[in-house]
Amino acid sequence: MKILVINPNSSFPMTCSIEETAKRVCSKGTIIEACGPTQSPASIEGYYDGAMATYHMLDVVTHKETADGYVVACFDDTGVDALREVVAGPVLGIGEAAMHAASMLACRFSILTTLERSVPIIEDNAAEYGLGRRCRGVHAADIPVLALEDEQDESIFSIVNKAALDILAKDRSDALVLGCGGMTHLAARLEASLGVPVIDGVSAAVGFVEALIRMGLKTSKSGGYAFPRDKQTSQNGEGGNV
């Protein structure tokens, strides 16, 4: 099987880090292809960045060979619903995957993301996924997304580790969810330090998508995720009725 792992932002180092994790956790025989749109914002930090990235992500996917499944490697689950309309294989965002994985491993979990401006998006997603009660808090480490590009920066691990210790105690949570695809390289070290399950969405999404493909399941094309309808424009180039 082939899984296309899409980093919706344009950070090449982050795409490489995400690809490394996906290839490490995938099953033997699974082909992982990672990509990221070069025209997207360098990082996704808020609604505007997410809207811009969705457009460019969809453009990249339409020019790629069809894959058996897709992973959207942004914790905001940027453009997941739109992508589900244009492809047939299962599509999973790392936010949804990580939250569901955490709900299977712990009674309650906390999410640690990068900046405060991302917290409302993630809180709304948790509620939409029916996990608002299991998620005891979404917190920001006050780290810009692009600061995670340097995997050798020990100060980043120290900041994230301290923040994680604080929020687990505050929320009385039993597991930590990493709220950014750029944190994927920190998961193993954090789990060893914290002593609780640390869920990385890239790993979770790859595993879930593999399982869906093996089960022969695809995205429903009846209803909301049906392929987009062809639209006609008038001869003068203007759109038709709204």
Rank of each mutant, 00 (worst) to 15 (best):
M1L: 00
K2V: 00
I6F: 12
P13M: 15
T21G: 02
A22W: 02
K23S: 08
R24T: 09
C26G: 00
G29T: 03
G29I: 08
I32N: 05
I32Y: 08
A34W: 04
A34P: 02
C35I: 12
G36D: 08
A42T: 13
Y47A: 15
A51R: 12
Y55N: 02
M57R: 03
L58F: 02
D59R: 15
D59P: 01
T62C: 06
H63Q: 14
H63N: 13
K64E: 10
T66M: 12
A67C: 07
A67E: 03
V80S: 08
D81I: 02
L83M: 12
V87W: 10
L92S: 04
G93S: 04
S103Q: 01
C107D: 13
F109P: 01
T113S: 12
T113L: 12
T114F: 12
L115K: 11
R117W: 00
S118F: 00
I122P: 06
E123Y: 03
A127D: 11
E128K: 15
E128M: 12
Y129M: 11
G130R: 05
H139K: 11
H139A: 06
A141R: 14
D142Y: 06
L148D: 06
E154Y: 00
K162N: 12
L168T: 05
D171S: 10
G179R: 10
G181N: 04
G181S: 06
G182P: 04
H185Y: 15
L186M: 14
A187L: 06
A188I: 13
R189I: 00
L194C: 02
P197G: 03
V198Q: 10
D200E: 00
G201V: 01
A204P: 05
G207M: 14
V209N: 04
L212K: 05
L212S: 04
R214D: 12
R214Q: 14
M215S: 13
T219S: 05
G223T: 05
F227H: 13
K231Y: 07
Q232D: 00
N236M: 02
G240E: 10
N241G: 10
